[in-house]
Design a binder for these strands. Structure first.
Lengths: 128, 128
DNA sequence: CTGAATCCTAAAAGATACTG
DNA sequence: CAGTATCTTTTAGGATTCAG
């Protein structure tokens, strides 16, 4: 009975993990930290369009879920370094695969959208 | 210069694809359709907690981006079958990998969250 | 059966100002 | 430098009603 596969998808644990990579910034930050550790300000500079609020919030949540490590260096002024945990490095692999897919196929998606928007314009437009 | 990798991530095309798999239902539906085509009502029944509005909306968007095929059978009453396009099948592979990761590690994430919530309870609790 | 339309609530995200 | 605290805007999503 192939129904099992579907049930897995409906399983809450899976969805809760999916929720982690949802959100505008989660995946992006995991991918960045997969390359090397970053300090707070460095992340901000490399992601120009993130607010410090969202950066803090996203990092906190990733830390909470065990993906990210937060290390405070008691310098003056203080600096905080973020890096991936083992779990974070682990999930970064399927995420990288997804990014690669996106790089390869984003054009196909773009033209698909364009075609759809063009054809589907009966109702607003006038094809007669 | 390893900066290139980061730029790729910041690239808008990639983010736009990532946005497609964000959202509460997109991934779920792609994964389901990866198994076999479904009719509208079948999808509803297999995903008990989706509203028909979100189901319609999600399917429309997936169709628009080229992941999903929509075929209308002029039966009485009409029935509509949704299936993956080649592009949809293609993206379903990295998505499946992600699902598998989630199945394998959701427990680790769960306990990480629990630990964090426990330790971080100074401020609300009283560890003194 | 499929799905469009409207209304409404909740959650995500942005802007800004302030602190150790 | 690395945050926290508010406030406001925007978007996602749910409930309900109606239609081909």
């Amino acid at each position: 009975m192939q129904n099992d596969d579907q049930q897995k998808v409906l399983d809450c644990p899976v969805r809760s993990v999916l929720a982690d990579i949802s959100g505008k910034w989660n995946t992006l930050i995991i991918i960045m930290l997969a390359e090397r550790p970053y300090r707070f300000g460095q992340l901000r500079r490399h992601i120009p369009d993130i607010s410090q609020r969202m950066l803090t919030q996203t990092l906190r949540n990733l830390q909470r879920c065990g993906y990210v490590n937060r290390e405070v260096f008691p310098t003056k002024p203080p600096s905080v370094e973020y890096s991936l945990t083992d779990l974070g490095r682990s999930i970064s692999e399927p995420l990288q695969a997804l990014i690669q897919w996106a790089e390869l196929h984003s054009d196909a998606v773009k033209t698909a959208r364009k075609n759809y928007d063009m054809v589907e314009n009966r109702g607003g437009g006038n094809i007669r």
